[in-house]
Simulated scan of single mutants.
Amino acid sequence: MRHPLPAAALAGAALLALAACSGSGSGDDAADGELALVTSGTLTVCTNPPYEPFEYEEDGEIVGLDIALTAEIAADLGVELRPLNTGFDAIESGAALNARQCDIAASAITITDAREENVDFTDAYFDADQGVLVAAGSAVAGEDDLAGLKVGVQQATTGASWVEEQGLEGVQFEDLGLQIQALRNGQVDVVVNDVTVLESYVDDELEVAFVVETGEQYGFAVRTGNTALLEAANATLARITQDDTYDTLVAQYFGTGAATD
């Protein structure tokens, strides 16, 4: 399920108002709304591949829709982009941002109230739901069929929370790649994660059994109080929506001719 950038991304960011870039080396936020980056001249992005098409490795580099979108933010700021492979638990908890490992986190992060206690989110840029991936020909067809099964989840994700809320037996893995491997080798019976990324694993052996409509939305995260970077990121999201860059990038990374189904 794919949707264009939510209309909320346009609110409050109609004009591109970029803060001045100055590197502090220590990554401390500058005063008076001035933008200070962890590394001068570089926008460092915490991300957690594999999570195709949002972030994944290709020819030794991290690429994907999240990387392309944050590259637009970096370009508007006049700086280079540096993706940094980071554990998702450190991303969603805000630990990586607070430790000044990166300036912004971009890893298909669902905006939640709990996470907003630890980070500031940009406007939403993607809509998502959960999916259940199974071996082809599995009898699993709905939520009731998950009872008694071992459900592979990615730690610290909304999918893991959903499985716990249903009272199911969740088996945690550090990343999506390990989840898929566990399903293929029979360590778990099914895998729960965002349906958009599970679709890339569908083949003769694996299929999406069903979708759980959770109505989630992704946002980029910055350190709490880093208003200069937050405003710059929102301005870029507004700009790329208005000039069709967003639709072009979605079509590119989803391998489709359009940004929506």
Rank of each mutant, 00 (worst) to 15 (best):
residue 121 F to L: 00
residue 260 T to V: 14
residue 89 D to R: 13
residue 55 E to Y: 08
residue 93 S to R: 09
residue 216 E to P: 05
residue 129 D to T: 02
residue 164 E to S: 12
residue 41 G to M: 05
residue 212 V to Y: 00
residue 130 Q to H: 13
residue 249 L to R: 00
residue 150 K to F: 13
residue 50 P to I: 14
residue 101 Q to R: 03
residue 74 A to F: 08
residue 47 T to K: 05
residue 49 P to L: 10
residue 139 A to L: 03
residue 123 D to L: 02
residue 74 A to H: 13
residue 227 T to V: 05
residue 66 D to W: 00
residue 222 V to P: 04
residue 175 D to Y: 11
residue 230 L to A: 08
residue 51 Y to W: 11
residue 45 V to D: 01
residue 65 L to K: 00
residue 1 M to K: 05
residue 78 G to M: 15
residue 198 L to Q: 07
residue 231 E to F: 01
residue 213 E to D: 11
residue 216 E to S: 14
residue 225 G to M: 09
residue 36 A to Y: 06
residue 44 T to D: 03
residue 198 L to R: 04
residue 41 G to H: 02
residue 57 E to T: 13
residue 81 L to Q: 06
residue 220 F to I: 12
residue 190 V to K: 01
residue 43 L to C: 07
residue 11 A to G: 07
residue 47 T to A: 02
residue 77 L to M: 12
residue 214 T to M: 15
residue 138 S to F: 09
residue 209 A to H: 05
residue 170 G to M: 05
residue 233 A to L: 03
residue 90 A to T: 12
residue 208 V to W: 08
residue 218 Y to T: 00
residue 135 A to R: 02
residue 41 G to D: 12
residue 83 P to Y: 13
residue 192 V to D: 03
residue 149 L to N: 03
residue 199 E to W: 00
residue 2 R to S: 01
residue 169 E to A: 12
residue 42 T to Y: 04
residue 198 L to I: 09
residue 69 L to W: 07
residue 35 L to E: 07
residue 123 D to I: 00
residue 104 I to D: 06
residue 57 E to S: 08
residue 159 G to I: 14
residue 20 A to V: 14
residue 107 S to P: 01
residue 210 F to G: 05
residue 197 V to G: 03
residue 190 V to R: 04
residue 25 G to A: 13
residue 100 R to Y: 06
residue 143 E to T: 12
residue 150 K to R: 13
residue 124 A to H: 09
residue 81 L to P: 13
residue 173 F to V: 02
residue 170 G to R: 09
residue 218 Y to M: 00
